[in-house]
Design a binder for these strands. Structure first.
Lengths: 238, 238
DNA sequence: ACAATAGTGTCTTTTAGACAGTATTCT
DNA sequence: AGAATACTGTCTAAAAGACACTATTGT
């Protein structure tokens, strides 16, 4: 896997490819990943700072014997050390000229991680997902697509399972939902409604370091992507 | 455009490609399109019958100077003569071996058409979208993805604008929604709720061939993809 | 006792679903 | 007149939002 071309250094020449039938072919198939987490009430995303200072989403080239999702998981493992992450496909960006290195379509993915992951790659760092410097190529558009997706699924699925730890208090869950949806949910109503989705269950244990009455701990009953019963909750004030 | 390799005949050999850096590259980038319409209360999709009798979704190869969506629109124009169709990207399928002709990722698209379009391509025909013979490759999975998508967006967007004619009665709209969602909507409640989305407006004209009291004609106020105010309506009985 | 956080109960408003009943046309 | 289709009004049940109030801990 170390013999593949790198996606993280500046290009020097334009790549081309021709297939065995004699027609122009894509020079490569790429994946780009929007890794999201919620830390200190803010939605944050992982970027790589390149040698010229430009910021790019993590990504890489898909090998000819793997699925693009395997590429994503492999790359995330390299950058963060995490093996188990929530990953789903977002959309494919393939406009001619989107990548100056050549005809390189990219399949964009959304990945979610619990907060506090320290990147193992020294060029990687977390930035604010909703208020940040411009990214390279069409990566701003990819990031916007990811934020829209996660907001759209927030109350209908267990996406948040990717961000919350295995056990969490309803207050922790509420902070994550608040950061993503940009809505201040009422604590009582939040508890009622998230229980009504049928996606969480109390573990019976409690957390005592909350500064007041101990909080019951909950888990998502499903750790794979799942849909709950529909709630109609707002996810943005705008 | 006639000099490109065809996507509709059986393969004879496996295509490969190598890029200028010496690495394996995709042999081609394809698009496949799920064209949906509603006719006589049934959801129908366009397929091409190949020389060996197998059924495939319409599709083609993306040229190196066009966006995949342009490829889709070009192919649909060839097969049906229609220029203006509702098109949106679904997902990309790129598992190794998905296409026996070689490493050929495909970007799947959803397209919607009004009923009664006669295909110009003699190999093309409409089949039932929810109850049909098996399709080639992973095309069954692509079709399922399309049906899920259109059901998911039905009450939240103006997707149905792609199927309904420019002017339509609320009964016609209700039949389309009924076919897609597989729910028998109450006529009165349907009228109230579709007006509440803010996506339709009465034209002031009427249709008199309904066999009873004339029906008011409506249009979608937006013909480009748009989102209405959220309704929580059910879309499946299962 | 007091502060702090967790959690419950309940009232109001909105909206979905059902359906009775009225309106307008054609034969 | 009667049949057929279009449309309105209204009742009920469910669910979302707001918020007062109670519960349980640490200091």
């Amino acid at each position: 896997m170390s013999s593949e071309p790198t996606n993280s250094t500046a290009h020097t020449e334009r790549w081309t490819a021709t297939n065995s039938a004699g027609y122009a072919a894509p020079a490569a198939l790429a994946v780009d990943v929007v890794v999201l987490t919620v830390q200190d009430g803010a939605t944050r995303t992982l970027v790589l700072e390149r040698s010229d200072g430009a910021l790019a989403l993590p990504g890489g080239f898909v090998g000819d014997a793997e699925t693009p999702q395997q590429t994503v998981i492999r790359k995330l493992s390299e950058k963060t050390g995490l093996q188990e992450v929530y990953v789903e496909q977002l959309a494919t960006f393939a406009a001619p000229g989107r990548d100056p290195r050549g005809w390189i379509p990219t399949i964009a993915y959304l990945a979610l991680m619990p907060p506090g992951i320290e990147p193992t790659d020294p060029a990687a760092r977390w930035i604010n997902a909703t208020d940040h410097a411009a990214l390279v190529f069409d990566h701003n558009e990819i990031l916007e697509t990811a934020l829209e997706r996660v907001r759209g699924k927030l109350w209908w699925s267990n996406v948040a399972v990717g961000i919350l730890p295995g056990e969490f208090t309803l207050a922790e869950a509420r902070h994550v939902y608040t950061a993503i949806a940009d809505i201040d949910y009422d604590p009582g109503t939040f508890a009622r409604d998230i229980r009504a989705t049928g996606l969480v269950a109390a573990t019976g244990r409690e957390r005592h370091d909350t500064g007041g009455r101990p909080a019951s701990l909950y888990t998502f009953t499903e750790h794979h992507p799942a849909w709950g019963v529909g709630r109609r909750k707002r996810v943005s004030n705008t």
